[in-house]
Amino acid sequence: MTDEKRSLRQKDFWAALALMAASAGLLFKTLEIPFFQARAAGIADGKWYNSAAIVPYMVFGLLFVLSVTLLVISIRGDGLPTRADLEKIAAQARAPLFQKFCIICLMLLAYIFGLVPRVDFTLATALVMMALTYGFYEGRMRPAILSLILVLLPSVYAMIVHFPSEQWAKPHDDDIVTLIGFVVLVGVALVEAIRTHGSLPGYLRYVPIISFFTPLLLVIAMAFGFHQNVPNRTGLLFSQIEYHYYVTLKPLLDGRKD
């Protein structure tokens, strides 16, 4: 039994417990779906065999059985955590790798749930791309934390001020906050990197440009090249791009045609 295998079995132990809890919870939730008196919905008679709950019972029941089996396998494979293992787990939670994982997850969640629905796509993406690259390029902890703070501030602001979906398309104050966040992050990155290394690392010369222009080009290509819908058409930058595309650029191009 190698160490790697044992640590895998330990993970299996916890995963099995989580799966058991999840499948039991979902089985409980399945009780809400009518079973023996299945709602008929126009089908002549609601019997158990055409109930919407039958396959879920099978699936989650089987999942429960399999997770119990997994638990048994993990315990047989010496996966039952000892006191020392528990302490090791606690130590791992404080280790940089796990903290970085949490930081990435928080950034992704803030980006998708906070920024993308409410803030101009270019600004939101520029901020997050800059944060991810700067935060994780060198693998140091300080850039990661600084980036996280500067992503969270605008997202939390946008979430608090414009939470309901009716307000997503409305005012632009959160767009401006995000823009400020991006500019500040670029500034902080440059200053922090120069103070740490004594000079500006090569990658930071072009990362802000990539971060800003990648989403800008993407959104323009998507909207006007591929004719697809894009997030937040009313966003600070995009509404202007769209306006000038039709009012300034299009007449120019059309004028040439006539």
Partner: peptide, 23 residues
């Protein structure tokens, strides 16, 4: 680099100004 960022910000802000004249 800094010059570029300043330029981008300026461009962005000028666009905000333009939005008033959108009738």
């Amino acid at each position: 680099m800094k010059k570029f960022t300043a330029l981008a910000v300026a461009a962005a802000l000028s666009m905000v100004g333009a939005s008033a004249a959108q009738a």
